[in-house]
Write a protein that binds this DNA or RNA. Structure first.
Lengths: 175, 175
DNA sequence: TATTGTTATACTCTATAACTATA
DNA sequence: TATAGTTATAGAGTATAACAATA
């Protein structure tokens, strides 16, 4: 058990003003509840977890329905092994195929199957229903517009910071 | 494997306009990355999971540092058994005590300990740092204000809909 | 030597169902 | 009978480290 960190020094960390705190808590609560509801819908409608849905959706929106593992790991999943696991599950379900990448023999390219697209299509309407009912219902066009700018700015900002598949790797002969 | 839902009928589900979709995706990505980063910080700084932090923080903000289990289950955790589990962990860490509720002998009241407050205090500055660096950095006061209204509206809306600890209960002699 | 992906393994969170005790 | 919480159990997601293969 850590907790050996220095105690909080109020002067050292400015703290957040009420507005910032409020936005943070709202964001967490909203996204958490939304995610929970969506996960339930995805599970019932298509037997998909959220990550699996994200993977399928990403593939579905990609040029040939394909993406390299690392690309997917960076965008959707946290760890490589986690992605391997999920890719295996999706493959077993017949929603995805795995093949060596054409240009790089080391690489593996994931491709969504016709069945995968079917499941995606079967799941999507309900997905949107949940979004509407839970998230969009109390918002008008102006609200959406008001959210879009800042959220997008944060997203862009976040993307610049962490190269997610970069750090975790460790060489064998670490000094 | 389900997936026996009817295929998507574009006419049946209007779909989302690009602005709505964009906001949704941004929200998911932002909250997901933010949560991931925060979880890591909490783990390193205080050996806490996010749920545990939420529980402690909720207790810390409560009248006597106390809350009933059900209240906590509704607000923070999804299932009762999940909360029992987390409460047990926090108790084992010495961050929380469990005692029968004064007014209702069936109830259990969770109370944060001095040690719990210490951990909370030890963890908080880093928590805020992460928030600043990842989430607040690219936002100015106007952005915060722009986010606050809509997000709060959604939160209020969501809270009205689901009584989280209500549905899951099932009687023994179901007909 | 560096990178890509897989394997083995383990840990945490969460959930369902059955159960006890109090209202 | 209904509600509060616990227990037992199981399943899913994620991560770390070691490994194989290609660049």
């Amino acid at each position: 058990m850590p907790a050996d960190a220095p105690a909080a020094d109020p002067a050292e960390t400015p703290g957040l003003n009420p507005a910032e705190l409020g936005v943070y808590f709202s964001l967490i609560e909203v996204s958490s509840l939304l995610r929970h509801a969506v996960e339930q819908q995805l599970r019932e409608a298509g037997g998909l977890s959220y990550v699996q849905f994200q993977l399928l959706a990403t593939l579905g929106d990609s040029p040939h329905g394909s993406q390299r593992m690392t690309t997917l790991a960076d965008g959707v999943v946290y760890s490589r092994s986690g992605l391997t696991h999920q890719a295996g599950l999706l493959e077993k379900m017949g929603l995805v195929t795995r093949a060596p990448s054409p240009d790089d023999e080391r690489g593996v390219t994931l491709t969504i199957t016709a069945r995968g697209r079917e499941v995606l299509a079967a799941v999507f309407p309900g997905h949107i229903e949940v979004l509407r009912a839970l998230f969009l219902a109390p918002l008008d066009a102006d609200d959406i517009a008001a959210l879009a700018g800042p959220l997008d700015r944060v997203r862009t900002h976040m993307r610049q910071i962490p190269p997610r598949s970069a750090a975790p790797r460790r060489r064998k002969n670490a000094d």
